[in-house]
Design a protein around this nucleic acid. Structure first.
Lengths: 189, 189
DNA sequence: TTTTCTTATTGTCAAATGGCAAGTCCTTCC
DNA sequence: GGAAGGACTTGCCATTTGACAATAAGAAAA
């Protein structure tokens, strides 16, 4: 729980009473590898802070191929923001790629925190902006890199993942086929 | 100016007095094709609402190649958010690709609006989230599409641009070389 | 251990894309 | 109009990647 508070304090000030309010709402949830945190078609009603583990956001494209949009690791919030904010059915899945320990807030929890903690909205909006800016910054350059470079960058960012998730998932994240990724791997050794 | 107010009201309520406050801060600025709205290395101190025209965000990659990250068209805000929010030097350029009519706010303007208009921060944070979600939604699928599909999607989104900007700019946005784009074009005719 | 299933690698060939350079077209400027 | 410069196209060939299929390797189940 300390991790979450520490993270929040990075974006604004909270006194002890406010911290207690946050902790009062926080629910610790464990997610086993491969379990879903939220699913396409349903409205996302929870936000999670990742204490331990890594999740991924994925969807199925027109051809029915499963595409991994990105991975999210600990010390970040995860949510399908479009679904959560606008109460519309989600278009993507959020799935644990390793066992995870999450701290979960429902939308009602957050609404109450927003009403009782003055700086709350400011903190959340800073966190939101930061998270989205990071996503753009990560994905955007990938378009102009070749697959090998994209793979190497992935290795740098998620060294622990490379050999623990199916190649097919990683390949879809990198925008190539599984066979191509396998060849790139061989090429690097 | 009406466009801006109309846009803002989409994200929250403002009474006439508050609208007047916003309009009091707004500065109309014209930008000629190819002029810069903000530049890499400098801290972004302004936000613009695009009344007319299209801008692009671009940077130079490690190899010195100019890469266009994305285009932004009218009825959107444009700013290097990371630079603007955190007062750090920008890593990218924002340039007009057509003549533009902008409504510009300085960071001081926005701070004052934030202090005098209660719902202002909420409106801004909704707009920020929406804009960034859209960027992710636009860029992310491009990785798993081939260049031809990416080009066709661009044509659909910016039909008026295709023949009015240099091929090199468009190619860098699509993540391919100018020659490849030229061949794709021929192929489509 | 053996079986079974999933995941990863590899082979073959085709298609897409890049790199480079030459040529063409178009605009601008003199 | 002619010259110069920039932008676009095209040719040639190498490399990357995809599609498909067979095999190998590894993990889970019996």
């Amino acid at each position: 729980m300390g991790k979450l508070i520490h993270y929040l304090l990075h974006f604004g000030e909270l006194n002890q009473q406010q911290i207690d309010l946050v902790q009062g709402k926080a629910k610790e949830v464990q997610l086993k590898k491969d379990e879903y945190f939220s699913e396409a078609g349903k409205i996302a009603r929870q936000v999670a802070f990742i204490n331990e583990g890594i999740l991924r956001v994925c969807y199925y494209d027109i051809k029915g191929e499963e595409i991994t949009k990105y991975f999210i690791d600990e010390n970040n919030f995860v949510v399908d923001l479009d679904s959560f904010n606008n109460k519309i059915p989600s278009s993507e899945y959020v799935q644990a790629v390793t066992d995870c320990k999450l701290i979960v807030f429902s939308s009602e929890d957050l609404k109450e925190l927003s009403l009782t903690i003055i700086p709350w909205d400011g903190i959340i909006s800073k966190i939101t902006a930061k998270a989205l800016i990071e996503k753009v910054a990560r994905i955007s350059p990938m378009l102009s890199e070749d697959a090998k470079v994209r793979y190497l960058n992935f290795l740098e960012k998620f060294p622990q993942l490379a050999n623990r998730i199916p190649l097919s998932i990683l390949a879809s994240y990198l925008g190539i086929t599984q066979s191509s990724l396998s060849r790139i791997r061989k090429n690097i050794r």
